[in-house]
């Protein structure tokens, strides 16, 4: 088997394949279906200071090549996460890395979650979600340059753990936002969260999704994700985690060649929980076939004809 390890965020990832936030719960739900400790890691469902009730149904629906969701960040909140969810991750994930996805209404909310968790054990670092399209103000921090800079530097002052910022695709130039995060002290970036979208039930003349609009994910967004990962990676020297529509090794390799050091698999898990293992096997097979010894050699190894 090819060597799939990657060194970044101060540690070794045994594989570049992680599970995306919101699609793997808190890990435990997939314990009988995914060999969690044999993949690169997982990112938890968003954790907010207070529990959130979430949006009315329908919360999910299918669209060609993808799905739309408006969960509304329903989660158990910081206290129950620490008491009920984190202990399971601590006990069961020894080799896989855990990032905790953090959301808040205000900078103080984000700071309270990070300070509340920081001395606990069982996770590597944070993925700061400034990019949820399904709640009011969900992308506020992700689209306001000053607010983003202040948020990231505020969090940087609170923790020595890896701080990854999850970017929204809904900005004219993602490179600008990527650089802001890097300058404010982020250790890495995740690109991307979902795209806002809407579906209408024409018979009923009503929106399909209870929240009216939602976030689009799945294979349909892969080219946008690859493009935005490429743009973000070109703008910074910190590592980028590529996300969006990945369901095979070759999908993941598109992100890696575009500059991603790690990837996350989300919607594909719903189609087949073995997706992350298939993605890993696909990357390994490619490395063998192309005689690549280290995965790092593929990161950003895209050649553009005429621009070599």
């Amino acid at each position: 088997m090819a060597n799939l390890t990657q060194q970044l965020l101060g540690v070794t990832f045994q594989s570049p394949v992680l599970l995306a936030s919101g699609t793997c719960g808190y890990g435990e739900e997939y314990a009988s279906l995914i060999p969690l400790d044999e993949i690169g890691g997982l990112v938890t469902k968003a954790v907010s200071l207070e529990p959130r009730p979430g949006n009315p149904p329908h919360r999910v629906a299918e669209t060609p090549g993808g799905m739309i969701n408006a969960i509304g960040l329903q989660n158990v909140g910081l206290d129950r996460f620490r008491g009920e969810k984190l202990p399971w991750l601590r006990e069961n994930l020894r080799s896989a890395r855990v990032l905790i996805n953090v959301v808040g209404h205000s900078a103080e909310d984000y700071e309270a979650v990070v300070s509340g968790l920081d001395s606990d054990e069982g996770f590597l670092g944070y993925e700061i979600n400034v990019s949820c399209p399904n709640v009011k103000d969900g992308t506020l921090f992700g689209t306001d340059q000053q607010a983003l800079a202040a948020l990231v530097s505020g969090l940087r002052a609170l923790t020595d753990r890896p701080l990854v910022v999850k970017l929204t695709p809904n900005v004219p130039d993602i490179g600008v936002y990527a650089r802001i995060c890097e300058e404010a002290g982020a250790d890495g970036l995740s690109a991307i969260n979902t795209f806002p979208g809407m579906l209408i039930d024409v018979e009923a003349r009503r929106p399909v999704i209870g929240n009216v609009s939602g976030g689009v994910s799945g294979p349909a967004i892969l080219p946008m994700g690859v493009y935005l990962t490429w743009r973000a990676a070109a703008a910074v020297s910190i590592p980028v985690i590529g996300i969006g529509g990945i369901r095979s090794g070759s999908d993941a390799l598109q992100y890696i060649l575009a500059g991603a050091s790690l990837v996350q698999v989300g919607t594909a898990l719903f189609v087949d929980p073995s997706a992350p293992v298939q993605v890993q096997a696909g990357i390994a097979e490619y490395m063998k076939r192309h005689d690549v010894a280290r995965l790092a050699d593929l990161v950003g190894a895209l050649t553009i004809p005429g621009r070599e």
Binding site: G25, E29, P56, R59, V60, N69, Q74
Partner: peptide
């Protein structure tokens, strides 16, 4: 019956009141 994503409790897509 409600629309489902994962079927196993991770996505929170299938809620009822």
């Amino acid at each position: 019956e409600e629309h489902m994503g994962c079927g196993v409790g991770t996505c929170q897509g299938c809620v009822v009141l």
